[in-house]
Amino acid sequence: MSEARERILKRLRANRPAASPAPDAYQKPLGWDRERRIAAFSERMQAVRGEVHRVARDAWTDWLARELPARGLRQVLVGNGAVGDQLAERAPDGIALRRYDQPVEAWKASLFDDVDVAITAARAGLAESGTLVLWPDAAEPRLMSLVPPVHIALLDVGRLHENFAAAIAVENWADGMPTNALLISGPSKTADIEQTLAYGIHGPKQLITLLLD
């Protein structure tokens, strides 16, 4: 189909509009301090039914040990990174810890049907929109934050940016994008019937952020 390519490009070049000034790089600095970012993140996330809990950096395993059984979440999926290792060290009683350690094709049915909750780290957060930034990788694959009905994400408060533009600039995303980068703002939802919001359509029904500091 390279003929199609040449013809399309030729037409585009033939009908070239006059140059307009390139836009300035977009920044939207808000001047928010740490507490303001935390408050905004929490408020926005909760507005779309995301749960947010502030937890001491060394106490998140305690929180999980308490909350997972209390919420009836027994089949727990973790990755192969630090989060999985730390939780494995003190997996609470009655919890089956499952590692995402083989290609999805080997256990897809079980991933879709058996897992109650997945726990991952978040790379960063966006305060203004109440958003988690995830860069899934070999240690914490893409489907962890998508297929299980509950997703718990650990976010260090030090990694709360004001907004998306700031995250891209500060972290120099343009220098190297991962296979998949995700912004996640709340549990899955739809408004396709009568424009009425309903949560938990195809992705997680619950999204829980543990804000660590």
């Binding site: 995402y100 083989q102 990788d137 070999a138 694959p141 296979t179 998949n180 995700l182 912004l183 996640i184």
Partner: peptide, 16 residues
């Protein structure tokens, strides 16, 4: 809820 940015197919070592 989601903004999904795809830059590559599955890379060696990645599981999905």
């Amino acid at each position: 809820t989601y903004f999904n940015m795809i830059s590559r197919p599955r890379q060696p070592g990645e599981l999905d």
